[in-house]
């Protein structure tokens, strides 16, 4: 990693043990840079959710420290943390507490004690970004379909204008089309200047969207590389019981024909096939 990059989040030798004695993280170091799109992967219980919650300041490290935007999460206030790092939970039902969509999105800004006209401005801005029509503002979030509830949950976080947004399993239970929609939207936020961290089990999603992949197993960070390189480290991935996307595995099984080991998508594989064919033809001709 080049040192010119601006690390907005620094996890320094952090360990975390839950009150019941479960050791969730052991000596983890991690830096997240401004405007990155990072994926945390690993099995349930590997510590990836704990790490994400430590970054959002929802949990405080047992040992070591977490610095977000220059603040130690142990010393920063809830207001400071929430306006810098947003955390979208997996199940929208855990994070929708209000009777109308408007109140829901306004909840965060109101907790910041902002004047009501500023609150209104932020609500309108947020629902616009997530593509939610104004007609929903007076509806109860409870009765909306799951996809829309997830959008309301994201809008509620955006209203706090956090620079980094963490999304826990955005595509679990979603079909192909819904997954692409939500991920394209997160990419859009990323282009707008937000740093995005996702927690996921879906490697195709990681391959398509994440610049960098952090792999956790048994509470330890076992891999932290640009996604393209991460998926070539199959020996390390195997320790976390993670397999690269199918197309990557196909390319890796065919390296003897001259395929690259770091293919991430079907389109890349098609491109590489042309190259392989060309090369083999030349080889034969000679």
């Amino acid at each position: 990693m080049s040192s010119e990059k601006n690390a907005v989040i620094k996890v320094e030798n952090v360990s975390f043990t839950y009150p019941d004695g479960t050791v969730a993280l052991v000596n983890v170091d991690l830096e997240i840079y401004d405007r990155e799109f990072v994926a945390f992967i690993g099995q349930n219980g590997s510590g990836k959710t704990t790490l994400a919650k430590l970054i959002a300041g929802l949990l405080k490290p047992t040992e070591g420290r977490v610095i977000v935007y220059g603040m130690d999460t142990r010393k920063a206030s809830i207001h400071q943390l929430a306006t810098h790092v947003g955390y979208v939970f997996q199940n929208p039902d855990h994070q929708l507490f209000n009777m109308t969509v408007y109140d829901e999105v306004a909840f965060g800004p109101r907790n910041l004690m902002l004047p009501e006209e500023e609150v209104r401005k932020r609500v309108m801005e947020s629902i616009k970004i997530v593509g939610l029509s104004e007609e929903y503002l007076n509806e109860s979030p409870f009765f909306l379909p799951k996809g829309l509830r997830q959008r309301v949950a994201i809008a509620s976080i955006l209203a706090l204008r956090p620079k980094t947004i963490i999304v826990d399993e955005p595509t679990t239970g979603q079909d192909f089309k819904q997954s692409i929609e939500i991920m394209d939207f997160l990419k859009h936020l990323n282009k707008l200047g937000h740093t995005i961290i996702i927690i996921t089990h879906e490697m195709e999603i990681v391959a398509r969207y994440a610049d960098r992949t952090v792999v956790l197993a048994n509470g330890r960070k076992i891999l932290d590389e640009p996604t393209r390189i991460a998926f070539t480290r199959t020996d390390v991935l195997a320790k976390a019981f993670v397999k690269p996307p199918q197309i990557t595995r196909l390319a890796q099984a065919l390296t003897d024909l001259g395929f690259r080991r770091d293919i991430l998508t079907v389109d890349e594989m098609v491109e590489d096939t042309k190259r392989v064919l060309e090369r083999n033809r030349k080889y034969r001709r000679r």
């Binding site: 079909d175 192909f176 199918q246 197309i247 196909l250 594989m269």
Partner: peptide, 11 residues
């Protein structure tokens, strides 16, 4: 129809 076959098949 928004059914995504395995990547190897698409390829």
């Amino acid at each position: 129809h928004y059914v995504f076959p395995p990547e190897a098949m698409v390829y």
